[in-house]
């Protein structure tokens, strides 16, 4: 669609009486359809992030190919962190290809098992799949870069893992680029919108459990002075202990937040339409305002979440409150069926 045509569509929407506003008393918000919501997410949000991940993963593989073990792990560690940043920004809410390909289990399974990694390092010709996901992906690579000997055998295995991450990232980039063509029929669009809200709920629950509740419980049970967060090896960086996990937790939250209450007001069919903006487009401003207020409380709590149990408990509670609001009040007005996800079970 040309820019001029898009502009014409936007003008038409405006002329038809765009009703809600970003600051909805001043900025007109057009009425959006499920197609605007879903395609805006794919094209304006997921696709660029998948492309960014593919670029970073390529850099990670190159860093390991050229510098490991001769130049030490620093360059590869930096490339790993950049890749994980891109991954966190993309995968906080796993829709479409992320969900269908089970990407998280493929390249970011936690906890890793060092004994399995050691076995795989010792069997360089083995099919990588046979090593199992607890010996592969970002977590295993993190262990190799921060906790394992920096020798040729470990570097060779690390390079294979980086290659697998790069291949998955490229597959995701391609799949997201091809996705709009699969989302033409009403049925597919409604299913994708259902998936988006359901996976958002799953994503916020995963953030709450894995990055707040579990570390908190572990800290209290074992008497640790600080929570042991998921990126425990990168967190041992003497220059910034704990920074890797805290940064990733924040990025995951920011992705969830953006999808839920991002305040941009795009022309229909162009860019990301957050849930709050979608609600405003339907004239549901009081609910959108409450969503925004609750998200701000969660944002403050997450920003202030340190090593103290009280701050972690507060952040977990704020996320639970936000999730309850989305489940109980947002999904019914959008006619979304809240179903089951990988976050169910125990």
């Amino acid at each position: 669609m040309s820019r001029w045509l898009l502009f014409a569509v936007w003008l038409a929407a405006w002329a038809l009486g765009a009703q809600a506003q970003e600051d909805w008393r001043r900025v007109a918000v057009p009425t959006y359809t499920p197609a605007h919501f879903v395609l805006g997410q794919v094209q304006g949000w997921y696709s660029p992030r998948a492309a960014a991940l593919a670029r970073q993963a390529l850099n990670l593989e190159a860093a390991l190919a050229h510098g490991c073990p001769a130049d030490g792990p620093e360059e590869a560690r930096l490339a790993w962190r950049r890749s994980v940043v891109a991954w966190a920004r993309l995968s906080a809410v796993a829709v479409g290809p992320l969900n269908e390909r089970r990407s998280q289990r493929r390249i970011d399974f936690l906890p890793i098992r060092p004994a399995r990694i050691a076995e795989a390092v010792a069997a360089p010709g083995q099919d990588l799949e046979l090593a199992g996901v607890a010996a592969r992906g970002f977590g295993a690579l993190e262990w190799l870069l921060w906790a394992a000997p920096q020798d040729a055998a470990h570097c060779a295995y690390a390079l294979r893992l980086a290659g697998e991450i790069r291949a998955e990232a490229q597959a995701l980039e391609q799949a997201f680029a091809a996705r709009p063509a699969l989302l033409q029929e009403d049925e597919a669009l409604v299913a994708a919108m259902n998936e988006s809200l359901n996976q958002w709920l799953g994503g916020v629950e995963m953030l709450r459990l894995q990055w707040l509740v579990k570390p908190l419980g572990d800290m209290q049970q074992r008497g640790r002075p600080a929570p042991l967060l998921p990126r425990q090896f990168a967190d041992q960086d003497a220059a910034a202990p704990g920074a890797a996990s805290r940064e990733e937790r924040q990025l995951r939250w920011e992705s969830l937040q953006e999808l839920l209450v991002g305040t941009a007001v795009p022309a229909p069919g162009q860019d990301l339409v957050s849930v709050a903006t979608y609600l405003r487009g339907k004239g549901l401003n009081p609910l959108a305002d409450r969503l925004l207020a609750q998200a701000r409380l969660a944002d403050q709590a997450l920003e202030q979440a340190g090593d103290g149990p009280a701050s972690l408990e507060l952040a977990a509670r704020r996320l639970a409150e936000l999730k309850a609001l989305v489940e109980n009040e947002v999904t019914p007005v959008l006619d979304i069926r809240v179903g089951f996800s990988d976050a169910d079970g125990d």
Binding site: F340, S341, D344
Partner: peptide
């Protein structure tokens, strides 16, 4: 029924073991 079907049995009990290929 749904939680046992998806998250627990399909996920934790079957898919995780498939992915890790580990007796653990």
């Amino acid at each position: 029924l749904g939680s046992l079907s998806r998250g627990e049995l399909a996920g934790e009990r079957l898919e995780v073991a498939m992915n890790t290929q580990d007796q653990e």
